[in-house]
Design a protein around this nucleic acid. Structure first.
Length: 203
DNA sequence: CGCTCGATATTCT
DNA sequence: GAATATCGAGCGA
């Protein structure tokens, strides 16, 4: 019996959830050519996104067709298409008072099914296989078809499991946003090479 | 190495 | 019509 973080885990402020997700395992199960495959990796980089308190969040302007999952049940996958090229995957979470929120998964360390990941994402450099939000969704074959799946259920095609070891975590400013840049809501395992290296700081 | 810039679709104004 | 929670090619040093 595999254990997954449940609704009590995701029912906290998103920055707390984001910090605790580092070291957990992201698991993708799928069928390919009639074979059941299991791909997974340890989460090493996340970012928290809030609601009305966070101008950089998709939920800041209120509920829309795209961000509905951020306002619905917690522990669900929020998958969206960015820049016309890439998918990004989040887990919905929020404290009881907040109206919406999610945690973006920005980087993982591959554990299971690495050969299959390389089929989905052929790349020479091992580090660039899953070191970035658009990269890991390609390696794990995550698309908007998975939007809304229950990530607290070990039977889901996409879910989160407890990791083997706790990791050291540090907070930094978030990447790729132009507002609310003062919040240190990005959380990384500084020892892992699978984190975004370049940090842009916009003024 | 590091920086600039174009690709490309969905969303919102 | 503008902006975007990105990536990687191309260029110069």
């Amino acid at each position: 019996m595999v254990s997954c973080p449940g609704t009590s885990f995701y029912s906290r402020p998103t920055d707390v959830v984001a910090r605790d997700l580092v070291g957990k395992k992201l698991v993708r199960m799928l069928k390919l050519d009639d074979r059941a495959l299991r791909l997974s990796g340890i989460i090493v980089e996340t970012e928290a996104y809030g609601h009305s308190d966070d101008a950089a969040s998709h939920a800041h302007i209120g509920r829309t067709a795209r961000n509905t999952v951020m306002f619905g049940d917690i522990g669900r996958a929020y998958v969206y298409f960015a820049y016309g090229n890439h998918f990004c995957v989040n887990v919905s979470a929020r404290a009881n008072r907040a109206g919406a929120g999610a945690v973006l998964i920005r980087g993982i360390e591959p554990v299971e099914g690495i050969d299959v990941m390389k089929q989905f994402r052929p790349v020479g450099d091992a580090f660039s296989l899953t070191s970035g939000p658009g990269k890991l969704t390609e390696a794990l074959n995550i698309t908007s078809l998975l939007n809304g799946v229950d990530m607290t259920d070990a039977r889901s095609e996409l879910h989160v499991e407890h990791g083997a070891k706790p990791r050291k975590v540090i907070a930094t400013p978030r990447i790729g946003i132009t507002s609310a840049t003062e919040k240190s809501w990005r959380f990384i395992d500084p020892a892992s090479p699978f984190v975004t290296r370049k940090i842009k700081i916009k003024v």
